[in-house]
Design a protein around this nucleic acid. Structure first.
Lengths: 206, 206
DNA sequence: CCGATAATTAATAGCCCTATTAAATACTAT
DNA sequence: ATAGTATTTAATAGGGCTATTAATTATCGG
């Protein structure tokens, strides 16, 4: 088939698969769909990736890394603790905005397929373990300075992630409930980003 | 087939379907699976429900109602606003605990199947519209009394739902990240319930 | 240009799933 | 008991999906 621009067929297949996996999940994405999307023969999908399972895994593993990095938030060099936290929450929100369907797909696959849990565990355990402990230390320091109440790193992370993630996981429902159009939803996202920072900061007050 | 206890075969099928839909979602649940689960012939599933789609719809519509009632929270007759809010957050959490896989299935189906959005919209629009406005009024009253900061009802609901829901939607991931066993996760749920109340109440401080 | 290797296609085997049909069995009321 | 209805089963048509194979076309180094 014709190689449009610089992307190889293999890449095109991967990209089409990604789009479809996001849209429909693993089970409802068929190799024939992927081929149609790319405009190539269905056998090609198997030629490059052997099985649909392997194709998914290759997609999945790379996405897990992205998700974990989003989960543990990008660093920042802000002056005080509050500013830093604000930056991190917003950074997390923006990673989600750039990959709005990722959390859902991951939640989905991980909760319906034990194999995926293993894959996730494997990737996650590669993580610098002290990361969580470092956060915990910093929280303890701030608490002893009287800047914030006592809180576990895991709890803080859970709160941030949940507040941020819901806007992308539940968007179709929220649209129905709020009656927002797509444009209005974008504005709503912006408002929620600020709101989430506010909630977290206020909730940490001593 | 043998009618065990008082449940009819039709009910058994519905219950098995429910279990499997929760576990695997619509696409990955097959009428043959359901039949095997019940211990009956696969044709029976079609005898009672004609198609897998209709079976799912009958399950789906009842669950939407449950979800919406959970979303809009059970009432309470607590003295002050804070107590009332606390009760409602906890009630929401408990409904989720009793139906831990429901939000996920709903999110999933609603975001992958346009037909479901319509079903949801239909059910939701049956709702007493003033409900949201009543909450908004109460929030405004409390705000003018200086008890809380200004906040939209939708934002408050979103915050509550997201904090509560994540523990059930993301449980397999959270278990990996935290390293918690199932027992420990139950304890964690209890802690989070309190934590979520705390976060919401603190976040509403003027 | 040619031979070798890579990419692509057509065709199809084989499987599983849904849904239907016709036949068998269980139940119910008279 | 029997006719009539409801329930259940076996068998299967029909369709779609994955994966494989063999054949065809494109690419590239010498």
């Amino acid at each position: 088939m014709i190689h449009e621009k610089d992307s190889t067929t293999e890449q095109q297949i991967l990209e089409a698969a990604e789009r479809l996996f996001y849209e429909r999940g693993f089970a409802m994405t068929h190799t024939t769909d992927i081929a149609r999307e790319v405009g190539c023969n269905q056998a090609l999908v198997h030629y490059y990736f052997r099985t649909k399972e392997k194709l998914f895994e290759s997609f999945f593993e790379r996405k897990i890394s992205l998700f974990i990095s989003a989960f543990l938030l990008a660093g920042s060099d802000a002056a005080n603790f509050e500013e830093k936290l604000k930056c991190k929450i917003e950074a997390h929100f923006e990673i989600l905005r750039a990959n709005p369907r990722l959390p859902f797909l991951l939640f989905n696959e991980i909760s319906t397929n034990p194999k995926r849990v293993e894959a996730f565990k494997a990737k996650f355990s590669q993580l610098p373990r002290p990361m969580m402990e470092k956060i915990n230390e910093e929280l303890q320091q701030e608490a002893s300075k009287g800047n914030i109440r006592k809180v576990e790193a895991l709890d803080l992370l859970l709160s941030i992630v949940s507040l941020n993630v819901i806007m992308f996981i539940a968007s179709p429902i929220i649209k129905v409930v709020s009656g927002a159009t797509d444009q209005e939803y974008d504005k709503m996202l912006e408002r929620r980003k600020k709101e989430n920072v506010l909630i977290i900061l206020k909730s940490l007050k001593p």
